[in-house]
Write a protein that binds this DNA or RNA. Structure first.
Lengths: 386, 386
DNA sequence: AAACTTTGTTTAACCAATATACAAAGTTCA
DNA sequence: TGAACTTTGTATATTGGTTAAACAAAGTTT
């Protein structure tokens, strides 16, 4: 049964529109909301009253007059509730407590000793419980938990396959919802990162974004029309296994010449390179000391990143590309070769209008994005397409 | 100013829903429409009455009773108007006159002697005028012209770049609208093909479709959520220039190792191959005669197609992939190697749920799709996303 | 202090969907 | 055969949302 139109829907659309207008443009008056949205002043007044009584919006007193009656200033009430954002990584678990505005209230980290599901789940539950315990009192309390995991996730929040954890078909959402009785959203780590940059980082208000998470592998978060695109079964964006050398090195995925064999931290293990270290933070320090092998290798990685990025540009024609993940810390050395290769290899029209930047949120992008996914899930959004 | 909700919008949503329900499920009764859409019977009655008086829907008399009063059968009125679909190719111009149901009423073809804009435009105008002249009388007359061109097109219908025609920045929509005073839609040839398969061919009711047009080059039409995805500037889907060999053959686009150098008709010119012909239809005949070099080459093309298709699967995770374009005529020889390579190279979860088929509409897919784009533009569609 | 501006609310009107009742036209089964 | 049931489609009154217009409140300008 499809979605039909009735008055309830109209109200939902307009209320959602007003809520998100206030969230993005606060502080502002009812009159300004009416101007921005095109809704009648009376409609705005009514719906704002409801939003206020739902504690999602606050009236914080009069503002400056612009030649008439003083406006009553509205704010989105960041403190109406809290969410928990979690990033599950290979060696660590990062978790944050955020308010509805995405402000981090508390942060913690645990090292993981192994990847057995019961153990990892135990750690997650412990850290979540701890954060929930330290959450400030609020009208809605904890409204959701968002998790970013290094693997493929379907629409139901089942981790289909996470090679770095050795997980297959883990119903992570079910397990966490059962424990905490709040809505849980599970997302691929790159998708969470994309959400973070889209809402708080380098990609605010971008319609078509490609977020590339380059770390121990490569994954992409694809935002189309302001909306996360997950594909038919939820595992779009597995770009690390894009072939860039038809007869290249064999990959653990069963294919050959995969992009991430040439442009991720997986290259560090290559013995021929003579690298003085095996982790990005260490190599960054060597690069700062002008260590030759490191500089050369970063240049190579940058160039290979450029090849894959070019492929994605040709397919998606995004407005903006954001490079995130552990490798983004090497921006200083990757940026030039990456942009050079993209400029060399893309079609002329792409060059003019495409921007490539590195993550603004750095290593916290994913965990903030995961949390924010839960916020958006709580607030909802109803829109019309013509 | 954003889209707001009011009663007019509600009506638009429901009317659009009913119209498209009838279009897809006809013949059917009002009661059935009410069931399918979830709308109240009275609402359906009212809106169907309007659609009838607008001639978009016809009541064609009573149907079979299922134990009660006989239903009054409704049809979408294919004959309420006509559209013209045009496919502009390198050597030819194909045009069809279609009714609103996508049925071809008349078809013609012109050979092109050169690609100078004035000459091509002259031919297009002549052929369009001829088809308009032969259109049957109908309530709305000619409601639009849809064109598929081998190049990149922006949202305004400007052909940004069409290397095979030597065109740059041609405002084709403007030129045609000025001449004929009906809405004109211009689309990339692969996008038009995707629309054709989506509505009439191998991909009916698929939500996420990837249509790959393999001919003199390779282009892709990307359907996301049932909607054509054009990217930030309208040139998403330029997948032919995806790198599959980082240091491969240089391409005329300025890059190297582009997919279409290995998996399109561009391979035919490679002197080392010893091919007995240089066009797909001829080679198909040789393949039918078991000509060895031809069979081997088709196998190679199929394998390389598989590599690129794998890349796109990893990025987009579509529900269905349809291979169209001139090379689809060689399905018998391309299918096995293509599917084999995809099976070898994709991640395990992709294999289970992905289908790869070849175009059902064959060479007419593009021109029908182009026409149908004009139909959809005329009918409009208003929907809600939660 | 009078005139004008700006903000936000109140009022009445409008209109689309809906539930409900109902009419029309069929089938089923004793 | 005819009474009971089914199905289809329409008519009616109600509901509940947006809106235009008037208005009230609170400021600025001259």
């Amino acid at each position: 049964m499809k979605i039909t139109g009735d008055q309830a829907l109209v109200k939902k659309i307009n209320k959602s529109l007003i809520l998100h207008t206030i969230r993005k443009h606060a502080p502002l008056s009812r009159a300004r909301v009416s101007e921005i949205t095109g809704l009648n002043k009376a409609t705005v007044s009514n719906l704002v009253a409801e939003l206020c009584s739902e504690e999602l919006v606050n009236e914080v007193g009069p503002g400056e007059s612009s030649g008439g009656r003083k406006p009553l200033i509205l704010h989105f009430n960041d403190r109406a509730g809290c969410v928990i954002g979690i990033e599950l990584r290979v060696r660590q678990l990062t978790a944050v407590l955020c308010d509805l505005g995405g402000h981090v209230l508390k942060e913690c980290e645990v090292d993981l000793e192994n990847h057995h599901l019961p153990y990892v789940l135990e750690q997650m539950k412990r850290i979540i419980a701890e954060l929930i315990g330290s959450a400030p009192d609020s009208h809605y309390g904890i409204v959701g938990i968002g998790v970013g995991v290094p693997g493929m996730v379907d629409e139901q929040g089942v981790v289909l396959f996470a090679p770095n954890l050795g997980w297959e078909m883990v119903d992570l959402r079910g397990l966490l919802e059962q424990e905490f009785s709040v809505p849980v959203t599970i997302d691929n780590e790159a998708n969470a990162g994309a959400q973070g940059e889209l809402n708080f980082g380098a990609a605010q208000d971008v319609r078509h974004l490609l977020y590339i998470s380059a770390g121990s592998g490569i994954g992409s978060g694809i935002i189309i029309g302001g909306e996360l695109y997950k594909g038919a079964r939820g595992y779009a964006g597995e770009t690390g296994h894009m072939t860039i050398e038809a007869e290249g090195k064999p990959c653990s995925c069963g294919s050959r010449g995969c992009w991430e064999l040439y442009a991720s931290e997986r290259t560090y293990d290559n013995p021929g390179l003579n690298l003085p270290a095996r982790t990005t933070p260490e190599l960054v320090r060597y690069a700062l000391d002008q260590q030759e092998d490191t500089l050369r290798h970063f240049r190579t990685i940058g160039e290979y990143l450029g090849i894959g990025v070019t492929n994605l540009i040709n397919s998606f024609n995004p407005e903006l590309i954001v490079i995130g993940g552990a490798l983004s810390e090497a921006e200083a050395w990757l940026g030039e070769p990456l942009r050079r290769v993209v400029a060399e290899r893309t079609l002329p029209y792409h060059k003019q209008q495409l921007e490539i930047t590195f993550s603004k949120l750095g290593s916290r992008g994913t965990v903030i994005g995961a949390g924010f996914t839960a916020v958006m899930h709580f607030l909802g959004r109803t829109r019309v397409t013509l």
